[in-house]
């Protein structure tokens, strides 16, 4: 028995389903019944029940791409704020991909307080101690661009199914985006007007993340914005 419409906005404690269902993220089970744990959209597929949250802090998971800000240094690396209840650790060897003799090299030349870093989550232990790494090209210290912060819960919509929304924004504005799972996005572009347009699209997605047909509306808005002022 299902008690809500698919994609209906539900609130904590609201009964969603009763009987032989499996509960996934955003929901919990008591006896035979599955309830929502958060404000979000009920999402029922077959026997799977979940609630897509509309708010909430970012909790790091291994493999996530994140954008961090350096808030402190220690002898062998840096502490980064990753817009989460937990700070993350980045060791110098993970940043420069080689052994560094800490007695001979001054690591402050690599990163300073306030620097922005694109990184992947390498490890999260049971005490929520987080390690970062920068294994791919383009990861590491970021220069230029515009930093946008939105609710981490809305990031899946900015990416879209298989990155479809991201592709729309990039192709229509000619900008390049780095999207962190932790709610931070960097937009690079030569034309400041196009950068602003891309930011506007991101903010529109954040506002309307829970509505359907969003990709089409974003594409339309970007088309309109492009022709304006030409």
């Amino acid at each position: 028995m299902i008690y809500v419409q698919n994609r209906e906005i539900v609130v904590p404690g609201q009964l969603i389903a009763e009987g032989n269902y499996r509960h996934l993220e955003g929901s919990f089970r008591e006896g035979d019944r599955i309830y929502s744990a958060v404000v979000g959209l009920a999402d029922i597929k077959g026997d799977k029940v979940r609630v897509i949250p509309l708010q909430g802090r970012y909790v790091p998971r291994v493999g996530d791409l994140v954008i961090g800000v350096v808030i402190d240094t220690h002898s062998s690396g840096w502490i980064l704020d990753i817009n989460s209840p937990y700070t993350a650790n980045l060791f110098v060897s993970e940043l420069v991909h080689r052994k560094v003799d800490l007695n001979k090299e001054d690591i402050s030349k690599f990163l300073k307080i306030g620097d922005v870093v694109l990184a992947a989550v390498k490890e999260v232990d049971e005490y929520m101690r987080v390690l970062l790494e920068t294994p791919e090209r383009g990861m590491g210290r970021i220069e230029g661009g515009k930093l946008v912060e939105i609710s981490p819960a809305k990031i899946p919509r900015v990416l879209g199914r298989k990155g479809s929304m991201l592709k729309v924004i990039e192709s229509k504005t000619g900008c390049t985006l780095a999207v962190g799972q932790n709610g931070r996005i960097i937009v690079w572009g030569d034309d400041p007007r196009m950068v602003n347009l891309a930011v506007e699209a991101i903010l529109m997605i954040e506002r309307e993340a829970h509505t359907s047909g969003l990709t089409d509306r974003v594409a339309l808005m970007l088309e309109g914005g492009k022709s304006e002022g030409k």
Binding site: V11, P12, F28, V39, Q55, G56, A153
Partner: peptide, 11 residues
């Protein structure tokens, strides 16, 4: 608390 997205059993 619900508005902040903190998971809750109920209000």
């Amino acid at each position: 608390l619900a508005d902040a997205g903190v998971p809750m059993r109920d209000l």
